[in-house]
């Protein structure tokens, strides 16, 4: 049975502002899942808290909308319990680079097989417009009236430094290109970051669709070799007049799950739970004699 976009349709209408970049991301994720041929029951989308984190509510898919900053460790537990599920983490820049920064670095180095998509609008949307860890320096918001005083967190560079095996950036204004990137991230075996430039039309009047459109360019078309980690670092640091999109880096490394001995016989969640055998009980007792 082939999967179609209709399979992912939800009766729930998004509550996002008209024109919000999250619509593009939602469309791209659905499109990507159809492209790779996964049905809704085979997928689980874990989100945090933020405007964009409501995404699973607007699709027909397994979802878990969790806590601000914590979807990555929750997804980790899910993958370890059932590595038969395709797990996507979707969360904001505040969620991933603020509260969740520690988990992000550990997820990247841990290399579980999951997609980590950041809805990066460089602002706190749901709490109505405060600056975020990814806001550009000098960015004026209600909590940075003199302009943001910190350097911006760079998810792409951080993921590379942490040892991520797939690092990409997309743009919510280019649904088709983003869908392709997400599909590649899904097909990648290991931790796959997709940092998505997402215009927030209500609270971020600086980083608008036009602002991004004037700056973005395609890495593949520029001749970048995604196997070259040093070149990827160089590209990751590019920001301002020109902003690269596409796959910065991709490599292969054993995933965490495939190295766990206890998972060799298949997903834990699918095994029937039984009492210990007499022999096992005897053996365990002997440890205490």
């Amino acid at each position: 049975m082939t999967v179609t976009l209709k399979d992912y349709a939800s009766p729930v209408k998004p509550t996002w502002c008209p024109g919000c970049g999250d619509y593009g991301i939602l469309a791209a994720i659905r499109q990507a899942l159809v492209q790779v041929g996964l049905a809704p029951h085979e997928v689980l989308i874990v989100t945090g808290i933020g405007c964009g984190s409501k995404l699973p509510d607007y699709m027909h898919v397994n979802g878990f909308m969790t806590l601000h900053g914590r979807p990555l460790p929750i997804a980790t537990g899910i993958r370890l319990a059932n590595h038969g599920l395709k797990v996507l983490v979707v969360h904001g820049d505040g969620d991933s680079m603020g509260l969740g920064m520690g988990h992000f670095i550990h997820a990247a180095r841990r290399n579980l097989d999951l997609v980590d998509l950041i809805q990066n609008n460089q602002i706190y949307g749901l709490t109505k417009g405060q600056y975020s860890p990814t806001s550009d320096p000098g960015f004026i918001t209600s909590t940075s009236p003199e302009g943001a005083l910190e350097g911006a967190a760079n998810p792409v560079a951080l993921a590379l430094a942490a040892g991520a095996t797939f690092v990409a950036r997309g743009f919510a204004g280019d649904t088709k290109g983003l869908a392709d990137l997400v599909a590649r991230a899904i097909e990648h075996r290991g931790y796959a970051l997709v940092d998505v430039l997402q215009p927030c039309v209500t609270f971020n009047r600086k980083n608008t669709y036009d602002w991004y459109r004037e700056r973005v360019y395609n890495l593949a078309e520029s001749g970048h070799d995604p196997r070259d980690r040093l070149a990827a670092y160089q590209k990751a640091l590019e920001w301002g007049d020109r902003i690269p999109l596409g796959v910065f880096y991709q490599t292969e490394r054993p995933t965490y799950e495939e190295q766990v001995v206890a998972l060799k016989e298949g997903p834990l969640a699918l095994r029937t739970l039984t009492k210990l055998s007499l022999q096992e009980v005897e053996q365990l007792r002997s440890e205490f004699m």
Binding site: P73, L80, L85
Partner: peptide
């Protein structure tokens, strides 16, 4: 959070 994830997925 990991334990919640695992329980959510059906593992004690």
């Amino acid at each position: 959070c990991m334990a919640i994830g695992a329980n959510f997925a059906g593992v004690r």
